[in-house]
Nucleic acid binder design. Structure first.
Length: 641
RNA sequence: GCCGACGUAGCUCAGCCGGUAGAGCAGCUGAUUCGUAAUCAGCAGGUCCGCGGUUCGAUUCCGCGCGUCGGCUCCA
């Protein structure tokens, strides 16, 4: 007899040794139908595992987050099975689950998306056969024998510890696998192959190149549909498309990986940075600017010449070596070091919108998201060790203000000391404790990435979540115990002795170019009024009204607004359509009525039109809305006046 | 940097098997003067990414280079 404790702490007794399925079945038929696996004494195992002694069981149903991973892992097997059926000579390697699905790396002739349909059809056959997945344990020597013709699998098994090795079989297909798996292939209700690319065996370019085939799978057709809709939505918001359509920026072959910002893109850029400066000033920052081209000596002092040179653009000038800065900190160190500082000066919060260049590999460039030249909204804070906590807290609060203004949620992650690192244990201890206590006081949950810090200090990474729920790491706060040392920075303490300041680097936007791209996608090009490159457009109904419309435009421009006038001899409908497609928040139509009554009719981006708004009310509302940096478009309330 | 796909007018895209290119939008000209998402007509616009090769002939086939995209790799 076995005693089974379920996750609600209820206890069930079984005379025989039941499987997980039996346990589920003893509770309800529906549960048995929805179960895919179970957790037995904190270990995920197959549902058909026999429970031979008293155990604590948690049944995993299709609703549980782990279930999707199990399903996708099984789907990877099904794909490999299908591919092996279609291309008998392929050699399998590994097939893991990834965030949005799964892939399988297979040594085979290159295939393309055109081959997907065939593979998917074969997969459908396997799924419709509802093949059970059986686990069996095999001694290592036998496993090696089984895989005589599969060199990659042999290599993997050889690397495993001695003892028994688990295999999973579905029909005539067997694969080395830790499991667990779904009970039978019929659980895969919806799947799709997504893309194919090259990948090296064990990620080493010296090894053969494999075909990495990506797919995704769900328990429900609806989930797959939602996922595909999400991808479509993301594609619609692609910042490269919107950037072209709204005339914000472009790229040219003459400067790969370096963006050209157009006039409208710069309006957004400037509005964003105006706001950034306002917040930083209020938070006690000063702003500086350092050169982008600096002598080799400086890069030797900072260590970049030795460690980062392959990513730097260099130049020989008057027979001396120079490099274009990939980071702002060395220049910032020079500035700090060029003067004596008292402990009374600290903390010093020194910001710099710095233009940096990094020679990234050509294959990684991607729109504004990955470029070779970009601006960082950098700041270096110099302080005494006992100020760490307060300063980090200050940065976190500033981060929160700025992100929330943009409608972005965020979460924090702390990275601690890596194996290879400089500094003493005591320094790391002080630094890490400072970061932790600041985050504790700040009060947000955070994830800890052990050993993920930079070699020169621990860091807090800030991940934002955009309107589609995608996360991006933008902000980072890094403690640096290296630079002050290398540049021999000091301040004079109360004791009249020299002391080494503690320094942090921090960015909030990170790469402003990349952040700009994220904002384009976050807002889908519909920038809120305070950021919109053209805040409003004036449309005269006919040519006779152009002079009056011009007056209106001038008034608004004098009020500090970004205004355009469409005086083309086109139909009103056409001009409205184009204004809407350009995502201009406010469209002001000027007809004889508006001129006679001295009012405005205002169309907002949601298509609502309000007539008879006085110029005064309009200006007041717009100013309030812009000053408050509101994100909504409904300036004039529900009831059209 | 590696693998794959792609590169045609300002933009979006068509162009089967090799016979020097087409559409819509944008632009320009003219007519229309319009009340909340495309008025009509005409005109103009291209080193078909670049350089080589094959061929009587290359936008089309082949090679190399550049760029873009998707992955890989890298990421102080």
């Amino acid at each position: 007899m076995v005693e089974i404790t379920l996750s609600d702490n209820s206890v069930k007794r079984f005379a025989e040794h039941p499987t997980g399925l039996d346990v589920a079945g003893s509770i309800s038929e529906g549960l048995a139908r929805d179960c895919v696996a179970m957790e037995m004494n904190s270990e995920l195992v197959d549902l058909n595992t026999r429970i031979t002694q008293d155990a604590r069981i948690r049944l995993i149903t299709v609703k549980d987050p782990e279930a999707l991973e199990i399903l996708r892992h099984s789907a990877a097997h099904v794909m490999a099975h299908a591919i092996q059926n279609l291309y008998p000579n392929v050699k399998l390697t590994i097939g893991p689950v990834v965030e949005e699905g799964f892939y399988y790396d297979i040594d085979m002739e290159p295939i393309s998306k055109d081959d997907f349909e065939k593979i998917e059809d074969e997969m459908k056959k396997i799924i419709n056969s509802r093949l059970p997945l059986h686990r069996q344990l095999v001694p290592k020597d036998q496993a090696l024998k089984h895989y005589e013709k599969e060199p990659y699998k042999l290599e993997m098994i050889s690397d495993l510890e001695d003892g028994t090795i688990s295999f999973y079989t579905q029909g005539d297909f067997t694969d080395l696998c830790r499991g667990p798996h779904i009970p039978h292939t019929g659980f895969i209700k919806a799947f799709k192959l997504m893309k194919v690319s090259g990948a090296y065996w064990r990620a080493d370019p010296k090894n053969p190149q494999l075909q990495r085939i990506y797919g995704t799978a769900f328990f429900d057709k609806k989930d797959l549909k939602n996922y595909l809709t999400f991808l479509e939505e993301a594609q619609k918001r692609n910042h490269r498309k919107i950037g072209t359509a709204l005339d914000l920026f472009s790229f040219h072959d003459e400067a790969p990986g370096m963006a050209f910002f157009h006039a409208k893109g710069m309006e957004i850029w400037n509005a964003l940075l105006d706001y950034w400066r306002k917040e930083h000033r209020a938070a006690g920052y000063v702003e500086t600017k350092t050169p982008i081209l600096l002598h080799r000596k400086l890069w030797e002092t900072s260590g970049h010449w030795e460690n980062y040179r392959e990513n730097m653009y260099t130049a020989v000038i008057d027979e001396e070596d120079y490099a274009i800065k990939p980071m702002n900190c060395p220049g910032g160190m020079l500035l700090f070091g060029s003067k004596h500082h008292s402990y009374k000066d600290l903390p010093m919060r020194v910001a710099e919108i710095g233009l940096v260049h990094r020679h990234e590999l050509s294959g990684v460039l991607s729109g504004l998201f990955r470029v070779r030249a970009f601006h960082q909204d950098d700041a270096h804070i110099f302080m005494m060790p006992e100020q760490i906590q307060d300063e980090i807290l200050g940065v976190l609060r500033l981060v929160e203000r700025i992100y929330s203004t943009l409608g972005l949620d965020f979460h924090l992650e702390l990275s601690t000391r890596p194996e290879k690192s400089i500094g003493t244990d005591a320094q790391w201890e002080t630094a890490t404790r400072g970061l932790k206590s600041a985050m504790d006081i700040y009060g947000a949950d955070y994830k800890i990435n052990e050993g993920d810090g930079a070699f020169y200090g621990p860091k807090i990474d800030i991940h934002i979540k955009d309107a589609l729920g995608r996360t991006w790491q933008c902000g980072t706060i890094q403690l640096d115990m290296n630079m002050p040392e290398r540049f021999d920075l000091s301040y004079v303490g109360r004791d009249n002795e020299k002391h080494r300041p503690v320094m942090i680097h921090r960015v909030i936007f990170g790469s402003i170019e990349r952040f700009f791209g994220i904002l384009v996608e976050h807002f889908a090009g519909k920038f809120p009024l305070w950021l919109a490159p053209v805040q409003m457009i004036v449309l005269p109904i006919n040519d006779e009204l152009i002079p009056y419309a011009e007056d209106v435009k001038q008034q608004l421009i004098r009020a500090g607004l970004r205004v355009e006038l469409d005086g083309r001899t086109e139909s009103l409908n056409k001009k409205i359509r184009e204004a809407q497609l350009q995502q201009i928040p406010l469209t002001l139509t000027i007809g004889a009525k508006e001129r006679e009554s001295g009012t405005l009719s205002v169309r907002t981006l949601d298509g609502k039109v309000r007539y008879g708004i006085s110029h005064e009310r309009f200006l007041t509302r717009v100013r309030e809305h812009v000053d408050a940096r509101n994100l909504d478009f409904d300036l004039f309330g529900e009831a059209p006046s």
